[in-house]
Amino acid sequence: MSVRLNHTIVAARDREETAAFLVEILGLPPATAFGPFLVVDLGNEVSLDVAGTDGPVHPQHYAFLVTEEEFDQIWGRIKDRGLTFWADPFHQRPGQINTDDGGRGLYWSDPNGHNLEIITRPYGG
């Protein structure tokens, strides 16, 4: 058996707001409750398990490999919401997308400051 990621925990000041944000922007089915988590199913046997915290949230990076069509849809939702997006992970190229490795990519932030990314080709591809 190969090792595969099954889930990761996403810390959030407001788990409902964060789960709703992820579901809406990424175009996913509604999150489901499981214990203290709201589970956002990514559809490839991996989930983001959103957990509320009263303490500080330490921003993480979450990258999503998407199709060209999904990229356009997600990018459209980002623009419709008026969210700032960048072509680079250091947020130095606002309002742009990148074309690294022959695909397209962009970065934006969730309500907790997590650095989210969509790409249409894996890096090094």
Rank of each mutant, 00 (worst) to 15 (best):
L5T: 07
I25A: 12
L42C: 10
P122F: 15
D101V: 11
I9P: 04
I118L: 05
R104S: 04
R4H: 09
E68D: 15
A33P: 03
T18I: 04
W86H: 13
E68Q: 08
N115P: 01
Q73R: 06
E70P: 09
Y123V: 06
G103Y: 00
Q96S: 04
G124R: 13
G27V: 10
S2I: 07
V40H: 06
G76K: 02
E45S: 14
A51Y: 15
W86F: 15
N98C: 05
D49H: 15
L48N: 11
P111R: 00
D80E: 05
I119E: 08
P111A: 02
E117S: 10
W75H: 14
I119C: 11
H114N: 12
F90P: 00
I97P: 01
D88N: 05
T53M: 02
G102Y: 00
P59S: 06
G82V: 13
P111H: 01
V39W: 15
V23W: 00
A19L: 06
P29E: 08
D72E: 14
P29V: 07
D101A: 14
T53Q: 01
T32Q: 14
P122R: 14
Q60F: 13
H61F: 04
S2L: 07
G52N: 08
L22P: 04
E117H: 08
H58S: 10
T8W: 03
P29G: 11
D49A: 13
F71Q: 06
R104E: 01
R81M: 03
G27I: 12
V46L: 10
G55P: 07
G125Y: 14
D101S: 14
L106I: 11
T120N: 07
D49R: 15
G52L: 08
D54E: 11
G27W: 04
P30V: 07
H61Q: 12
G125L: 07
G55I: 04
Q73E: 09
A12M: 02
E117L: 10
E16H: 14
L106D: 03
G103Q: 00
V50R: 01
L48A: 15
T8E: 03
S47Q: 12
A19C: 08
T18R: 03
R15I: 03
V50S: 05
R77M: 07
G27D: 05
R121M: 09
H7F: 12
E70M: 06
H7N: 14
G52T: 05
P56Q: 12
S47E: 11
L48S: 10
L48I: 14
E117Y: 03
M1Q: 08
G105W: 01
E69W: 00
N44I: 12
I9H: 11
E45C: 07
L38C: 04
F85R: 02
G27Y: 03
A31H: 05
P56V: 04
H91Q: 11
P89F: 14
P36Q: 12
F71A: 11
G124C: 12
A63G: 15
V3R: 11
P59F: 12
L38W: 11
G27M: 09
S47W: 10
D100L: 11
G124Q: 12
L5N: 07
A33M: 10
H58P: 00
L22R: 09
